[in-house]
Design a protein around this nucleic acid. Structure first.
Lengths: 313, 313
DNA sequence: ACCGGTTGCGGAACCGGTTGCATGAGCCTG
DNA sequence: CAGGCTCATGCAACCGGTTCCGCAACCGGT
């Protein structure tokens, strides 16, 4: 395994020059850069990460914290983040935690020593808990906004409001919203948006929940949905909606419209059921970009919120 | 941020002794170990990973390679592996690759410099491609067996065979198997097991596929399932089965039994539909244990296959 | 009392990069 | 042509642990 010293020797320069030629080409003579690069190429030189990290005081790793891997909402986010991280030569570690309890802040602190920054995905818990978790290293929030922190959110609240409007326009008069997990920030946003949208319309809005984002939970809501004599349902998560649709069909109920992802609506040929699509990959990419920006800056940059539009069809 | 030198100073010993006291307690006097530990505790000492890695020549990171994150089969595996890795103070990076093409071996090679070992999950492609990818670092295969390599497989083939037997016993005479992705090793195993199980029974077996493990693909098989006048279906993946069940219900077809995960069967109250459950977490844990064992041994250990039983109910 | 053998510890080299500082060559300007 | 600059480069310290090696104290045995 060739080291920088080998490269330097082959190129006829010192380690220092070789290092600069590869890492900061502007600090070395063009001709030297070329020679060093050629040598590195020839030897198949790959810098030792640990050495670089040690010398620079950075780990080159960022952690993505997700509440669970069982939810298809999070996995594309991870994929997007991973892709962007790889582009910058960074590695990604995945940590599964829900930041509801103070104990989990300790877990994050433990991790903090081993990474340069965090992506916290849809953290539950209070603002204070999240702030505490973010206090160790530069952090970008995904799908949650907290005053003073950088975050990237999919604007699902607006989208859900639009969805309800759509249902109202379609003539639905009894609409049910199936809420997400207890303590979910997104859920609160969506509830507010949905209430605002439905309020003036005269349609009856029934709010159910909280529910975990699982298929089983969706199945269990069928009873209540039927009891509410709803004709349209807006579920918090795809998995909930799927369980519900399933249970309804299973009961022989065929006249309730449940909004879902475009993929599902289309593959089933559900026609004019409004579909909603969150581009999780994009979410992950943008969040990682933000984090990279944070890591790049010397001084604390001002917190930003990037709001990604969520398409409805 | 306290360093080992700080700990050593506080404990009144040298760096060398401090290092030994913490890392190899058997090499130091018990009393010294206690003093050093106390000092470390008091200072909140956390060893610098990069330094350790550099000194030891190991990265402390292992990579899990999965074909996709969109399949709920893989995510629990990652979870299990992650948990075990964390127990050993190792980190996990996730790489999303399908090892079908030679080009992706290069991607693995790139990663190889940054990790100590690999977990390759359900790699497609030829044995040679997988061998090439595994040639860089110690590697454990998950859900695929290749001569001469260590692997951990869920014995779903046997389980699927049993499943078909069960259907036959229940009186089903036209059974459909919906195949998984093209080139899937598991799919080949299952096909063989299913054929062997159904062969002597006199039941008609229709093999469909290949299909990707998606909901949409499942929906699309409904046509063929109906055409085959099947009364029982065994789908390759949960997602396929879900799509199929959905499409069938949607068409008003209610007399076709589709095997699925226990969770789904139970939440829907599907009664006596046989359910199959792969403990992905366990799979990940065992695989990681095997990898740790590989990493621990000096000499090349003999390859092993751990076969995990998959429960059916 | 002497000796070979353990045992616990410290000194120092080392892992493989990065970077502050010094040096010297070459260039511009007055 | 001298003084001052910039630019390219090398030397060496450094990041924070790990580990080889040697030394000294201490053990029991004869």
């Amino acid at each position: 395994m060739p080291t920088l010293a080998d490269v330097a020797a082959l190129a006829g320069v010192s380690k220092a020059t070789a290092s600069r030629a590869l890492g900061r080409p502007d600090l070395a003579a063009p001709e030297t850069v070329a020679r060093v690069r050629a040598a590195a190429e020839q030897l198949g030189f790959v810098p030792n990460r640990a050495a670089t990290q040690l010398a620079r005081g950075r780990t080159g790793v960022v952690a993505v914290v997700v509440p669970t891997l069982d939810n298809t909402f999070f996995t594309p986010i991870i994929g997007g983040a991973q892709a962007r991280a790889a582009d910058s030569g960074m590695q990604l570690t995945i940590a599964v935690h829900s930041l509801e309890h103070a104990a989990q802040v300790a877990a994050v602190e433990q991790l903090a020593h081993q990474v340069d920054g965090f992506l916290l995905t849809a953290p539950r818990g209070s603002d204070e808990i999240v702030r505490a978790a973010a206090s160790f290293k530069p952090t970008v929030l995904i799908d949650r906004e907290i005053e003073g922190m950088t975050s990237v959110v999919a604007d699902t609240a607006t989208a859900f409001g639009t969805l309800v409007n759509r249902f109202v326009e379609m003539g639905h008069e009894r609409i049910v919203y199936i809420g997400g997990p207890a303590g979910s920030w997104q859920d609160r946003q969506r509830q507010a948006a949905i209430r605002a949208a439905a309020g003036p319309s005269g349609a009856t809005l029934t709010m159910l929940g909280p529910h975990p984002s699982t298929f089983a939970a969706g199945v269990e809501t069928a009873e209540a949905v039927v009891a509410a004599r709803a004709t349209a349902v807006v579920p918090y998560a795809t998995s909930i909606g799927l369980g519900l649709m399933f249970a309804l069909l299973h009961r022989g109920v065929r006249d309730v419209v449940v909004s879902s992802e475009r993929m599902i609506v289309e593959s089933l040929g559900l026609g004019d059921v409004p579909a909603i699509d969150v581009d999780g990959e994009k979410l992950g990419e943008v969040a990682m970009d933000q984090l990279m920006a944070l890591l790049g800056e010397r001084r604390e940059p001002s917190p930003t919120t990037r709001r990604l539009t969520v398409p409805i069809s």
